[in-house]
Design a protein around this nucleic acid. Structure first.
Lengths: 218, 218
DNA sequence: ATATTATTTTAGATGAAACTAAAAATTTAT
DNA sequence: ATAAATTTTTAGTTTCATCTAAAATAATAT
């Protein structure tokens, strides 16, 4: 069984290797976990010994198949607890991360499955992120351009078509990131522009924008 | 903030000092926590430094006011989680202890209060043990002799009037202990005897017995 | 291509929490 | 009351996860 610290490291690798397809650097790992690079090196060596990480000195690390499986399971627990905290106990979505960070380290397989059943087998957490299934599979759902969505349709921002710098800056400045909750308020058929609500704030999007955002319908 | 280990020690002291009114011995503490006496000594010295335990070398230890407060809060969390596991997730009462043992160490005051509210402010856990309130007070509830209970009445065994050895042996042999769930099945008015269900097993109690058991109605 | 800079790893140290073995204190028995 | 047995404490190790400082490697800039 893994320690909490080991679980935190493989979870961080799980996130970081999604972006960078090459090996995850020691420093980025340390930065994400708010620790020092030397500590990250120590842990990478240990996890490599255990066969959970493929690690080459100075070259970076990636999760092995086993490591990925375990990481997905920790993420599953984290996201199920977040759903519980928001849906069952009435927390707001921004209060739950730190609590779920503790709950995810509780080891009790039956608890996870009973919680999942009680919550009605949710497919996404309150931030819109997908919940891995009990085998660690992340159900990749069909995505569509925001421009194809109908009035009142609710969706989650899942990816960006052309991720050029200017566009990312635009999104960043408006505080819009992957996982954002988007609801179509009004469509303008003559130019394809849209009034949308993103995380409780109203925005006007031209067709250039709506044709560049992939969403997943809720 | 206390470590999980420190919390386990003060919780063990909380239980042990209820029975023995004198100082709790190093060995009994070690035995309860399945560890060695030398480890218990180390921890008692640390907790004494922190002002949570009144400890005199070779003489045993008792919780200070602060320590008692903290212990009661850990017990509160443990018992609330047990109620959640049984009532909300459908675990049986004998499966929940080890899981609650982990959940009790999650630090999130708001979580405890929201969980308490969600569960409807329960006063006892699934084993019949009282749940301390948010100030660490253990609400001592009114108790009555089992002989005064009506048909179908459900109650919890809370104490014994005359705790003589023979009677305790009798209870022990029948596997009946404090916290037991008792339901009155049938009353015999002519001699005051009773048919009762104790923890899902049927027993016949004479009036001598029903006049010696204090219960708390549910 | 070599020097400079940045990143990564190693070596050694610290604090928690446990352990074993030996010393000290207390309790029990003769 | 003293000896024997038991309990408790101390002293010294171990493992885990972190740190700092120094050495090794890789990346970059002239």
């Amino acid at each position: 069984m893994l320690t909490s610290s080991e679980e935190n490291y493989i979870k961080a690798l799980f996130y970081l290797q999604q972006k960078a397809s090459k090996g995850v650097s020691t420093s980025s790992l340390a930065q994400r976990l708010d620790t020092k690079p030397s500590s990250a090196t120590d842990m990478l060596q240990k996890l490599s010994e255990k066969g959970l990480v493929d690690y080459v000195k100075y070259k970076g690390a990636l999760l092995s198949t086993d490591g990925y499986q375990l990481a997905a399971h920790v993420v599953r627990k984290h996201r199920l607890w977040e759903v519980f905290l928001v849906k069952t106990l009435g927390f707001s979505w921004d209060q739950v991360h730190d609590i779920a960070e503790q709950l995810e380290h509780v080891h009790a397989p039956l608890l996870v499955e009973k919680l999942d059943a009680f919550l009605g087998h949710p497919r996404r957490d309150p931030h819109g992120d997908p919940i891995p299934d009990k085998n660690g599979q992340i159900h990749q759902v069909e995505k569509a351009l925001l421009s194809t969505q109908q009035n009142d349709q609710e969706s989650i921002l899942v990816s960006i078509k052309d991720a050029n710098d200017d566009f990312l800056k635009y999104l960043n400045q408006k505080n819009i990131s992957l996982g954002a909750f988007i609801k179509v308020i009004a469509l303008e058929p003559f130019d394809g522009s849209m009034t949308v609500e993103v995380n409780h704030e109203t925005h006007y999007f031209s067709s250039t924008i709506t044709n560049n955002l992939y969403v997943q319908s809720l």
